[in-house]
Design a protein around this nucleic acid. Structure first.
Length: 420
RNA sequence: GCGGCUAUGGCUCAAUGGUAGAGCAUCUGGUUGUGGCCCAGAAGGUUGUGGGUUCGAGCCCCACUAGUCGCCCCA
């Protein structure tokens, strides 16, 4: 068939999707403006070690999903699989700790993970991401969640669910994991192979297992929220109180365990309908140890990533249609070579006047030119023929009622401005 | 990395193992300078790739590739 094809898991965003993207990016800007966040853009490529260190060596992302390669200088580079590590690198490298605290940033762009593609999951996908650096107050946890919620409301989403949990800290998390292992070890023989493996490798993952046999065992499984240290417990309690204060309904879901090593305390997810099995539209949490881990001063942080492709799927599912892309309301048609010159000039002056115009090239039949005007839903088509050139006038055809008016060439811009 | 389903013009799909078609879209014409509706015509395919079975394969078998949905995991 075709000689070249898309790389697996990477999408062409075609015209039918573009209005959604434009709409989404507009709403993102409005929302970040509303909350006072600064945009930051970091490179798509980083030293591979940044992610190995930042995201965690044992994580799936690092272990089997990173696009990693050696460049011409022999350095190991990786296509970024997530935003946070790169932004923290930028924060440290640019001495951004001297900026007013907390530092609030946002970004949007492509990320790369070599996973098996599926509905709502692509090897190259785009995320909207925000990070707040330098503040431990759970009030910023709430701010971050609120920002996501504002965006989704603006986009027109409904039926979303907010799930929160705490993953504790280096003090209490390991103790809880031990308690969890002890609990599931009693039922080791009842666990499906999948979860037996998790019990050994990553016990927390059993909590969000979809294995049927595991479900009854989860009923009585110990919850981390009952085993938090005092600091984490206070943080979680305040978080819930603040969420209630702003009337943000939440569900405490002790089964939320996020896949990245750096999370501490607050973790959260927002889910939407209509996405198939990949229904998380926003996921994030606090990472109070990450910046120090990457070589900076001990600094707390919190953020989330949110998948734009999933927004598009969800918007479609909910029947939310973005505004149409603006398109010129005027076309310029011509008959003959002399008139073509005038038509070109006219089209150019309409663009300079910010009216915009589309010119049909190729010396097509007049019929074809009007057809093209019709196709883009033009309100007017300006007709230039030999007759018009001779008398220095253009014929302006109203495409809705087919009425034609003669307008002096020098008056065309003015005439159209009054009617558009 | 594992599993189910799928693969025919740009798109959506037809074609008892026997000459690959339709609709939509595109272009042209029906009007020496007039769009939408209608009519006519043209262009567009080595049936995803490679093997095999058969007198003969779009159709049956195998492998690969890609898509899709799911698992793992995640946005």
């Amino acid at each position: 068939m075709t000689k070249y094809q898309r790389i697996t898991g990477m999408l062409d965003v075609l015209f039918d999707d573009q209005p959604y993207w434009r709409y989404i990016l507009e709403k993102i800007r409005q929302t970040t403006d509303l909350f006072g966040y600064n945009r930051i853009d970091t490179p798509l490529l980083e030293q591979a070690n940044l992610f190995i260190r930042g995201v965690g060596e044992g994580t799936d992302i690092v272990e089997k999903e990173m696009y990693i390669f050696e460049d011409r200088d022999g350095d190991y580079l990786a296509l970024r699989p997530e935003f946070t590590a790169g932004i923290m690198r930028a924060y440290i490298e640019n001495g951004m700790h001297t900026l007013p605290t907390p530092l609030r940033v946002w970004t949007v762009g492509p990320l790369f993970r070599h996973e098996r593609p599926q509905a709502g999951r692509y090897r190259q996908h785009s995320q909207f991401d925000i990070e707040v650096i330098g503040e431990r107050d759970p009030a910023v946890d709430v701010e971050v969640i609120s920002l996501a919620w504002h965006l989704f409301t603006r986009l027109g989403f409904y039926g979303l669910r907010l799930y929160i949990n705490s993953t504790g800290c280096p003090q209490c998390k390991p103790k809880y994991i031990q308690i969890l292992v002890d609990y599931f070890s009693q039922f080791a023989d009842k666990l499906p192979p999948n979860d037996q493996m998790r019990l050994k490798k990553n016990p927390l993952r059993i909590l969000d297992s979809k294995e049927e046999a595991t479900q009854p065992l989860l009923e009585d499984a110990p919850h981390i929220t009952d085993h938090l240290c005092e600091e984490c417990d206070t943080h979680f309690t305040k978080l819930k109180g603040y969420l209630e204060a702003i009337n943000r309904t939440y569900i405490v879901d002790y089964r939320i365990v996020r896949g990245l090593d750096y999370y501490t305390k607050t973790v959260f997810e927002i889910k939407a309908d209509g996405l198939g099995s990949q229904d998380t539209i926003c996921g994030g949490g606090r990472y109070d140890g990450l910046i120090e881990e990457l070589g900076g001063q001990p600094t707390p942080g919190i953020g989330f990533g949110s998948g734009i492709e999933r927004y598009v799927i969800a918007l479609r599912h909910l029947g939310i249609t973005p505004p149409e892309e603006p398109f010129p309301k005027v076309t310029v048609s011509y008959l003959g070579e002399i008139a073509k010159l005038e038509a070109l000039k006219l089209a150019e002056s309409l663009r300079e006047a910010h009216i915009g115009a589309q010119f049909t090239p190729g010396d097509r039949s007049f019929k074809a030119q009007l057809k093209a005007a019709n196709r883009i839903n033009a309100k007017f088509s300006i007709i230039m023929g030999e007759n018009e050139v001779q008398v220095g006038q253009a014929t302006v055809r109203d495409m809705e009622n087919s009425e034609q008016t003669s307008v002096k060439l020098t008056e065309v811009v003015h005439w159209l401005t009054e009617r558009l």
